[in-house]
Design a protein around this nucleic acid. Structure first.
Lengths: 244, 244
DNA sequence: CATTTGCTTTGATATGGATCAACACAGAGG
DNA sequence: CCTCTGTGTTGATCCATATCAAAGCAAATG
C-alpha cells in the first residue's frame, strides 16, 4: 500500500485548517501550555490532516522534518527487525504527541490504526517556538518524561508478565487512557487488530485470541459488537494486570 | 540491606565536593550544555557521593527530591511486580543522568551495581536553573529523547528477540556505550551479575549462563578474568544482535 | 584451615506460548 | 448470489526457555 504522503496532502489526505482555539483536545496536549498569543503562533505553522486506516505517516530512519499531534483516531508506532519481526512500541490516541527524533531521524515508524486526524508541525519552526516560549519546551520535556515512564511500564510487561497479565494490563491501559480523554472506560474500545495487539504485547495473534477467549470464559470480560470489550469483573482484571 | 541514605551522607556515603570544572565526564552529560558561569551555579547546588555496590539510591514511589548524574561506576534502575518479579529497565554508567519523575515521584528504583560515584542535584534548584538557562532545559529534553529511543530498542528486544539475540544485543550495547565514554570496547566490561542481566533481558539466570556458554563454544566470544568478555567474532555477534 | 555464603554452571524435566493447520465468518466485488 | 480475501478462532503438536535440582568455585568469615 502506498504511504500517506504529507507533502501532497491533497492526494491521500485532505487538508482542512481549523482554528487551534477551538481544538477539542487542546487541554490534553502540548498546546495546553500556551496563552492566546502563543497559540496563534502555533496555529500559524500547523496543518491538519485526515488519514485513512493503515497508512504510513513516517518510517524509521526518515529525516524527522515534522512533529505530530493526534486529534482523533489512533496511531501505532513500531520498530522492525530485518526479518520482519515487529514490535509495536505504542498506540497513540487523541491528544498524544509523536515525532521525537534522535539525530534528526525518526527512531520508529508510525501508521494509522483507523481513520485518524493529525496536526503536523514543521520541526524547524517548532524549535524556534521552543526557544521563544520556554513553557512549550517545558511542556514537551514533561510529555517526554511521561512517555519514558510508560515505556518502562511496557518493559516490565514485556519482560516479566504472562500472556494473561499482558492482556489484562492492555485492557486496563486502554480504559485508563479513555478516562483521561474524558471518554467512558467501560466498555473499552479496542480499535486495533489481534495482530497489532500481539505485536504490542510480544505475543502471537493465536495467543491473543485464546487469552481473550479464556478471559471471556472465566467471566472477567465480555466481547461486544464494534470492537468493544466489557470488563465484567473489574477487580479480577485489575488484579491480573498487576500480576496478582 | 540498609538503603544508602543521601540525607546523612557521612554514614554510608562520603561527601567530597569536587569542582565541576575538572569533572572528567562533563562533556558527556547535562553539564556539557553550560558555560563557565552557568557551570559554577550548577556546582553550587551539587553534592558528590561515593556509594558501595548494591546500595539503594532511591525507590519507586519516593518523592523525587533529587536528580543524579553518574560520574563513575554503574547503576541499575528497575521496577518490581508485587510478587517480586523484577524488570531492570536500564543500566547507567559514567555520564548518564537519572531521576526523571512523574507527579513528583520516581517511577522506578535505582541501585548501584558496584562502587559508584554520583552527583546529586536538588530538583527544586535544578528547576530554577532550567528556567534561568534554557540551554540546560533543552539539553535535558534531548537526553530524555535519547532515553526514549533506547527504551524502544529495549522493547523490541524484550518482545521479539530470542535469548541468543538478546545476549548478543546486550554485549553490543555495552561495547557501544564504552566507546561513547572513550573506553575500549573489546574486551567488554560486564560488571553486573547473571541475575541482573537476566532481569534486564527478560530471561532467567540459567538461560543467561547457558547462552554465554553457547556463544563461547561457538567461538563468538571468550570469557576473561575480571568480568570481561572478549568478542572474538565481531561480525557474528553484531549480526546476531540484529536478528540476522 | 575449615566453613559458610553467594554466585555461576550444568543437568534433567516441565510448560507456556509458538507454530502449523484447518475452519469460521463477515465484508467486498463481481 | 457466489467467490474471494482478510481477520479471527480453535485444535494438535512442538520447542525455547522456565523450573527444579545439584554441584563447582571463589571470596568472606571465624
Amino acid at each position: 500500500m502506498p504511504p500517506f504522503d504529507l507533502a501532497r496532502p491533497g492526494k491521500s489526505g485532505a487538508v482542512d485548517i481549523h482554528p487551534c482555539g477551538a481544538c477539542p483536545v487542546r487541554a490534553l496536549t502540548v498546546c495546553a501550555a500556551l496563552e492566546e498569543e502563543e497559540l496563534s503562533r502555533l496555529a500559524d505553522i500547523v496543518h491538519t490532516h485526515r488519514v485513512e486506516g493503515n497508512q504510513t505517516i513516517f518510517s524509521e530512519g526518515d529525516t524527522a522534518a515534522n512533529m505530530f499531534n493526534v486529534t482523533a483516531g489512533s496511531v501505532k508506532i513500531y520498530k522492525l527487525l530485518p526479518d520482519g519481526r515487529r514490535q509495536i512500541t505504542g498506540f497513540l490516541f487523541s491528544g498524544d504527541f509523536m515525532g521525537l527524533a534522535v539525530n534528526d531521524r525518526y527512531a520508529y515508524s508510525a501508521e494509522t490504526v483507523a481513520t485518524t486526524s493529525i496536526c503536523r508541525f514543521p520541526r524547524r519552526k517548532m524549535d524556534q517556538l521552543m526557544d521563544e516560549f520556554p513553557k512549550l519546551q517545558r511542556r514537551l520535556f514533561r510529555l517526554a518524561s511521561n512517555e519514558l515512564a510508560a515505556a518502562q511500564d511496557q518493559m516490565l510487561l514485556l519482560g516479566r508478565k504472562t500472556a494473561k497479565e499482558k492482556i489484562a494490563s492492555f485492557l486496563v491501559m486502554l480504559a485508563q487512557r479513555a478516562v483521561r480523554r474524558g471518554q467512558r472506560d467501560n466498555p473499552v474500545h479496542v480499535p486495533m487488530s489481534r495482530a497489532d495487539i500481539a505485536d504490542y504485547l510480544g505475543l502471537t495473534t493465536e495467543t491473543v485470541s485464546r487469552t481473550f477467549t479464556q478471559l471471556k470464559s472465566s467471566g472477567a470480560i465480555r466481547l461486544l459488537e464494534g470492537s468493544k470489550v466489557q470488563i465484567t469483573d473489574t477487580g479480577k482484571v485489575y488484579e491480573m494486570a498487576e500480576g496478582g
